[in-house]
């Protein structure tokens, strides 16, 4: 057992290094190339550190770094980390490796909110309308799903899954209905939102999301040990004295809120919440005390990496991150699925 602990500690250290390396890459690469040294120097100068004083950062580089790449990278790290953690928590709550926050209606609710904001023309008035509508839509959808599934104060997992599917279909129909009556330009705008992206993310987006996302991640990390029990199933968890309903509802709320915040500042980014925790489970095992921090780090690093690759793969165009996550994640996921022994029955 000691051996295993050491391994997962070691693994987390590697993940932290990867996390920062990918961030540096994302700050450095792009249409305007900023060498690593210049990125580091810009930080050092800003913080008043007496290192790298001989490296001069041009004002253009400075501007690109602070106003474009920094907020973009931070939003990516934040959203990716939030999606990774929420995905791991959802899979824990449902004891099912195929669960992700989308399964209880987070994304379909956000879509309805977004399309409403577009249809009403609000998205042209202020950039904040769409995120706020998407956020409210998700919360509404999750509330609807949970209250449909609730019986005598309990939420049976199977019923919750089914009501999630039903609510998803209903909201999908609502979205489709609105889409049929809006004009082409608005349709384009919606399509753009559906494929999540990190382009044009500013500091406003960072400030909008950082509270709920970091708070949510913090709470989820604190609850890691309880998730280990919840995963064992209703009866098993109750037999060791866990008030299952309360914990399940609470974790559901936290994971939904974190995902909804992510969706509202960067659009719908699939795949991260589903695949990152799954990958991490194969690498560090199912103990949420290792799985959750690993998913947080890997989620952030993965999303930013995808974004960076998407930025430079077909210049001068950008491939949106929602597309890249699927393209880059699938092969690696398949590779892990074939290689791993830990999930085999």
């Amino acid at each position: 057992m000691k051996h295993k602990r050491y391994q997962s500690g070691f693994f987390l250290v590697i993940m932290v290094i990867v996390f920062f390396a990918v961030s540096l890459l994302s700050l450095s690469w792009g249409q305007i190339d900023i060498p690593f040294m210049h990125v580091l120097a810009a930080f050092a100068h800003e913080l008043g550190l007496p290192i790298l004083a001989n490296v001069t950062v041009t004002p253009e580089q400075q501007a690109v770094l602070w106003h474009i790449r920094m907020p973009r990278t931070i939003v990516g790290l934040m959203v990716g980390a939030g999606l990774g953690a929420s995905g791991a928590v959802m899979q824990g709550i449902f004891s099912n490796p195929l669960a992700d926050p989308g399964i209880i209606g987070v994304s379909s609710g956000a879509a309805v909110g977004a399309v409403l904001a577009i249809a009403l023309g609000l998205s042209e008035i202020s950039m904040f309308y769409m995120p706020v509508f998407a956020f409210l839509g998700s919360l509404l959808a999750v509330t609807l799903t949970v209250s449909l599934a609730m019986r005598h104060g309990k939420i049976p997992v199977m019923t919750l899954l089914l009501s999630g599917v039903v609510v998803g279909m209903l909201l999908g129909a609502v979205t489709a209905a609105i889409l049929t009556v809006i004009n082409e330009q608005k349709l384009q705008q919606y399509l753009f939102w559906t494929i999540g992206g990190l382009d044009y993310r500013r500091w406003e987006h960072v400030f909008l999301g950082i509270g709920p996302i970091l708070g949510g991640i913090g709470i989820m990390l604190l609850m890691a040990r309880h998730l280990n029990i919840l995963v064992l199933g209703d009866i098993e968890a109750r037999a060791v004295g866990m008030p299952v309903g309360t914990y399940r509802l609470f974790l559901l709320a936290v994971a939904s809120m974190t995902t909804a915040t992510g969706v509202c500042i960067s659009g719908n980014i699939g795949f991260v919440g589903l695949v990152v925790p799954h990958m991490m489970r194969m690498l560090v095992g199912p103990d949420h005390r290792q799985l959750l921090p690993a998913s947080v780090l890997a989620g952030g690093a993965f999303l930013v990496f995808c974004d960076t690759v998407g930025r430079i793969i077909v210049p001068p165009l950008e491939v949106r991150v929602g597309i890249m996550t699927a393209f880059l994640g699938t092969p690696y996921f398949l590779y892990l699925l074939r290689r791993t022994r830990r999930l085999e029955r």
Partner: peptide, 9 residues
Amino acid sequence: HVEVAFGYT
């Protein structure tokens, strides 16, 4: 019947 999801040791 105890069904243990995921690869817990």
